[in-house]
Design a protein around this nucleic acid. Sequence first.
DNA 1: AGGTATTACCTACGGTGTAGAATATAGGCC
DNA 2: GGCCTATATTCTACACCGTAGGTAATACCT
Lengths: 240, 240
Amino acid sequence: MAKRTQGKPAGLSRQRIAAAAVDLVDRQGLESFGVRRLASELGVDPMSIYNHIKGKAALLDAVSEAVLTEVSATAAQWPDGWMDIARTMARGYRDMAIRHPRIFPLLATRAQTSVVAFEALERLTAAMRRAGIADQTIADAPLVLFGFLNGYLLATVSADPGGTDEPATGATQPAIDPALYPALAALAPLQAGFGGEAEFERMLETVLAGIAEGAAGAQAARSGRRPATAAGPTSDHSGG
Amino acid sequence: MAKRTQGKPAGLSRQRIAAAAVDLVDRQGLESFGVRRLASELGVDPMSIYNHIKGKAALLDAVSEAVLTEVSATAAQWPDGWMDIARTMARGYRDMAIRHPRIFPLLATRAQTSVVAFEALERLTAAMRRAGIADQTIADAPLVLFGFLNGYLLATVSADPGGTDEPATGATQPAIDPALYPALAALAPLQAGFGGEAEFERMLETVLAGIAEGAAGAQAARSGRRPATAAGPTSDHSGG
DNA sequence: AGGTATTACCTACGGTGTAGAATATAGGCC
DNA sequence: GGCCTATATTCTACACCGTAGGTAATACCT
């Protein structure tokens, strides 16, 4: 027998568990994260979590969903134009990545199947249809936009060395040897504003412009460039 | 006391271990990969691996390095122009991602500090300097290019559900409900050629064009659109 | 009140990464 | 040859992990 407190409610719920998990990963990183640590954080038996979330994979999904929900929530209201919607999403997504650098790899790595994720995609694609964009372009758009966002933000925001307990430093360069890599070394100081907001906005606009160009994306290059350098998209193009 | 075979050489080496690890992850996925499985694959005690590679993290680095080396190796020779260099790199990178879909998340997620990685960056940036590109643009270029490549290829090539033993299927969509997401459902059939080569080439050109635009990247947007919106990002940019 | 479903807990099993110590071989030196 | 040392390999052990299966206590419905 001994004293048991088994049936006593611990106030667990999917939401509360997810919130605690988000907090824990933020503080200690993905590496060391696990069911048992989380349970101990919640003052609860590890197996109790399984009553609300099926397993570790589902737990990670719940974490992803939680931070994605933040993104939707922080956007007070959504604009009408698809480009402005995309900008709002992208900025909110980046803000989230900055808030949760150690969680972000989850979003970039695992396929997102939560309702919030689908809602966001629906919102974007619906707006593009309203604008009369070609269907094929619309179908590609989320891939281009979030593909870029994921890759770019992974590189700039979450260069997580591992499980130690630090406030998540931003990518630390390991000092480039100028003898081996002269060009890289010369450019190193310019990467000070690595991942800065201005840079992000610039690249975001580039990507959006690329999407806007649609199937003829490569033409975006020609427009602003002198006609000498860049040529047609597929056939002959010479760099410099 | 009992037969021991301790000192007998097992022919281990960093290279051989890395090659076996690549093969193992290709077959069984990252999820189930580990020192012990790899050791058993090599017919060797788990701890023997530690004589050549410090730990699991270093093991994953070795795997990354091995597949990155493939990329460098498959490129018979490098062109002169930076754009063509970038194209060659991007295509080789994609080919590698397709060959090793279950390894690729490693490259996108972990910071690459191997020699091959630095050499590639050096090659690209050096060529851009030769072409007289603005330094700030050059400093951003690898981030833009590989940021995009990582994100895009993660989404298209490696939607790995987990540790089961399959030949790595390409992203399976879970059937979208047209009642909830009409626009998405309507576009779903168009994502048939998801991640196809033509699409990749198209987006690659878009990204390269964006880089070519340099600091004035946002202007690429204006070209096809109204000139009202975009403002100067940091200071003035030479593009004009 | 009684019955049932849910929630929480306990135990246990097979797996993991890896520190530390023991041991057999390879290679250099005499 | 004989010896010595460095190195590669293995063995043992520990703390930890995810989670299957079983048990008890509470909440809820009737």
